[in-house]
């Protein structure tokens, strides 16, 4: 019998990865973890490939039990993480014994938590990725009682009695705020909004409950298009800030349709998109203008921090003789 993770309480959880790359030419959005940074770090902390399948938990409580000893890492929004009732840290590897219960409750400030397991989990596959695509009706949304296949196990490695932390890996922890500052660069159609474009930076917006992986709707003082005329359908980047109608901004996220016919006022940066993946309904979002050079520097520094963590994990795992899984 293969080893599994038995899900007791699924809430809103899916098996996820970094996305379905290279298929936008065929009309498929990239999808994948909305907070890419937290997802990458969770995998790296387990010695996995950054893009290995992991569990994305949105807003609601989650619990599960592995049928074998595992090493896991939980990142993303602050939450209460316990193993058999004992509080354990996020953003560090945590050893879990066969039969113990992992609980993630009280997700706060952000809305997405990532749970990765050393060796990763089994996942359905479509066009090179397990990322759910709601338009295709593809993906694995977990339900109470589900069993998720585990690809490998990991002997227990923390002290059985004293709970001395074995790991101090100093993962690059995302900062969480009740009010988000999201970096954007100028969009290709900024001039179509004339002087009203500046409104984007003047006052905060509120995340509407109709927000999801396709896009976030934000209420506030929206810029107005002053140009007229039809915009021919064309490719829109993830992160595009549009003003379709009414009093809402639409910020496209990873599940967005690849083409659209609205002018693009601004584009959220790569680091901004990961942060926006944590913004929940009712939270405030303030936009900050960045040049492309500044945006690229910020993103590279975030990725470099993950790469540096990778090296620390490798050394720690070698010292503790933890078998690192081979990339699939």
């Amino acid at each position: 019998m293969a080893d599994t993770l038995t899900v007791h309480r699924a809430g809103l959880a899916t098996v996820q990865d970094l996305g379905r790359f290279g298929r936008s030419r065929y009309g498929l959005p990239v999808n994948g973890a909305l907070d890419q940074h937290s997802a990458r770090v969770a995998n790296v902390l387990c010695g996995n490939d950054e893009g290995a399948p992991l569990i994305e938990i949105t807003a609601l409580d989650f619990s599960c039990t592995p049928s074998t000893d595992v090493l896991m890492a939980v990142t993303g929004a602050p939450a209460d993480l316990t193993v058999d009732g004992v509080a354990r840290p996020q953003w560090e590897p945590v050893s879990v014994r066969s039969g113990q219960t992992i609980r993630i409750t009280g997700i706060r400030v952000g809305i997405r938590v990532y749970l990765a397991v050393l060796g990763s989990v089994d996942a359905p596959w479509l066009q090179g990725s397990c990322a759910p695509d709601t338009i295709l009706g593809f993906g694995r949304a977990l339900r109470d009682g589900d069993e998720v296949g585990l690809r490998t196990h990991c002997p227990p490695i923390d002290h059985p009695h004293f709970r001395i932390p074995l790991f101090r890996l100093h993962a690059p922890v995302r900062r969480f705020h009740a009010a988000w500052t999201i970096d954007v660069t100028d969009g290709p159609d900024r001039t179509e909004f004339g002087d009203t474009a500046e409104r984007l930076f003047r006052s905060p917006y509120t995340v509407s409950p109709q927000s999801n992986h396709i896009g976030l709707r934000l209420r506030g003082d929206v810029p107005r298009r002053v140009a007229t005329g039809e915009v021919l359908s064309r490719g829109v980047p993830v992160g595009a800030v549009e003003v379709p109608a009414g009093d809402e901004l639409l910020v496209l996220h990873r599940g967005r349709g690849v083409t659209a016919g609205y002018p693009v006022l601004a584009v959220v940066t790569a680091t901004g998109l990961s942060a926006l993946g944590q913004a929940g309904p009712g939270q405030a979002v303030r936009f900050r203008h960045r040049t492309i050079a500044e945006a690229v520097t910020a993103y590279r520094s975030q990725r470099n921090a993950v790469n540096a963590l990778k090296a620390r994990v490798r050394s720690a795992f070698e010292a503790l003789r933890i078998p690192v899984p081979l990339s699939p």
């Binding site: 936008s24 990239v30 064309r234 829109v236 980047p237």
Partner: peptide
């Protein structure tokens, strides 16, 4: 597509436009 440029992971040709998406840690503008 045939150049297979490192870091480029999506292209969307439409009527009069071609969007090219990439990982800006792997390549640049």
């Amino acid at each position: 597509d045939s150049v297979r440029l490192d870091g480029v992971h999506g292209i969307v040709p439409t009527y009069d436009a071609l969007l090219v998406e990439f990982d800006c840690a792997g390549t640049d503008q």
